[in-house]
Simulated assay, not measured.
Amino acid sequence: MNNKSKLDNILVPVFSVILGLLLGALIMLVFGYNPVAGYQAMLQGAFGNSFYIGETLRQATPLIFTALGFSVAYTAGFFNIGVAGQALLGWLFSVWFALSFPELPGIILLVISLIVGALAGALWAGIAGFLRAYFNTSEVIVTIMLNYTALYTANYLIRNVLSESSDTTARIPEGASLRWAWLADLTNNSTLHGGIFLALIMAVVVWVFMKKTTAGFEIRAVGLNPFASKYAGMSTKRNIIISMLISGSLAGLGGAMEGMGTFQNIFVQGGIPSIGFDGIAVALLGLGNPVGILFSALLFGALKIGGNSMPLAADVPTEVVDIVIASIIFFVGANYLIRSIVDKRAKLNKGGVK
């Protein structure tokens, strides 16, 4: 990748964020709100003290996993819209395992619970991968259907298997928890948990896998041109399934972060968990790059947590945050416009130098 491409990959998300924030400010002005006060409240609510910083990092943690999962499938040429359902099943089965084997030593129980969550997500995504590889079905349609299958299956199991006609399960054993006392002390009793370190490690692992291994190269090659990859002797079917399994396992880990870390249980969901679709947005903003995903997850965490302070501190409704997020994704989707503006600007500057 040349220097110009690298610069464009930085400028596109940066300009997308700036334009999204500007559009949000314009909407606030139109409806009589003070955008300066609104954004000040957001920043204060996201980074104002150690508690808010902890909450922002906690909010970003599952998004890193789901975004990494989506990016792997996207690099392979597939739009895994089912990361939400895969995350939900990862959440469900990690909690289920922890509740079923409370007698296991803490670290063993935690590790196996996380592995179970990852496997649940992988198997759920593998259904779509298998159907795409062998029957050329649309992974978008299949994963959307699987999202709702996961939602209603999880709700049934919570009410009828994991509890006695209740909408929530018991709390997981303390040994299976990602909540660590020193993190709570450091962040003034926020809900930040050890999953943030797992997320950072996994971002490095995914980068190394995709950039430095033969399997990662084959996944990228299939995404760029499946026909040329097949001609070169690569198994497109195998790589389709592998990429979806990896994608689902990462999404499942994102869900396990909610069960083992944030909530310590699982409860009946009124809809598909937002960490799935927010993770897709994070991946798109980060352009599928693990480093970009870390920064965009932090941004989304700040928007979500900081947005909660806007109604009280600035009398700005939290819906403005959703508008800002939607605007950012819109501008990422319309990145060709931003690239065109950047290219024209570069040509004008070059002409001016001449």
Rank of each mutant, 00 (worst) to 15 (best):
M1G: 14
N3W: 11
K4M: 12
S5C: 04
I10L: 15
P13M: 04
P13V: 03
V14G: 04
V14N: 01
V14H: 05
V17L: 07
G24K: 12
M28D: 04
V36L: 12
A41F: 03
Q44A: 11
G45I: 07
F47R: 03
I53R: 00
I53K: 02
T56G: 02
L57A: 10
R58T: 10
R58C: 11
Q59Y: 00
A60H: 02
L63D: 02
I64Y: 02
T66I: 11
G69L: 03
G69I: 02
F70I: 00
V72Y: 08
T75V: 09
F79Q: 06
A84H: 06
Q86A: 04
Q86W: 03
G90M: 11
W96L: 00
W96P: 01
F97D: 15
L99E: 07
S100T: 06
S100H: 05
F101A: 13
L104V: 08
L104C: 08
I107A: 13
L110V: 07
L110N: 12
V111M: 11
V111S: 14
V111F: 08
V116C: 07
V116Y: 07
A118C: 12
G121Q: 11
A125H: 03
G126S: 00
F130W: 04
R132C: 04
N136M: 11
T137N: 07
I141L: 08
I141M: 05
A150P: 11
L151Y: 04
L151Q: 14
Y152P: 10
Y152E: 12
Y152F: 13
T153L: 14
N155A: 02
I158F: 00
R159C: 05
V161Y: 02
S163M: 01
E164H: 06
T168P: 02
A170R: 04
A170T: 04
I172D: 09
I172G: 06
P173T: 07
R179A: 13
W180D: 10
W182Y: 14
L183K: 13
L192Y: 01
G194K: 10
L198C: 12
I201K: 12
I201M: 15
I201G: 13
M202H: 08
A203G: 09
V204M: 15
V205E: 06
V206Q: 14
V208H: 09
K211S: 15
T214Q: 06
A215V: 06
I219Y: 04
I219G: 10
A221I: 11
L224R: 14
A232F: 05
S235M: 00
R238N: 01
I240T: 15
S243V: 01
I246T: 02
S247V: 02
G248M: 05
G248Y: 05
S249M: 14
S249D: 13
A251F: 08
G254T: 06
M257T: 09
E258I: 09
G259L: 05
G259H: 05
M260D: 03
T262P: 00
F263W: 09
N265W: 04
N265L: 13
N265E: 01
N265K: 06
G271C: 03
G271Q: 14
P273D: 10
I275W: 00
G276S: 06
A283Y: 02
L284R: 02
L284T: 01
G286M: 01
N289Q: 10
L298P: 03
K304L: 07
G306V: 11
G307M: 08
G307A: 08
L312C: 05
A313V: 11
A314L: 10
V320H: 15
V324K: 07
I328W: 02
F331H: 14
N335K: 15
N335I: 02
Y336V: 09
R339M: 12
A346H: 12
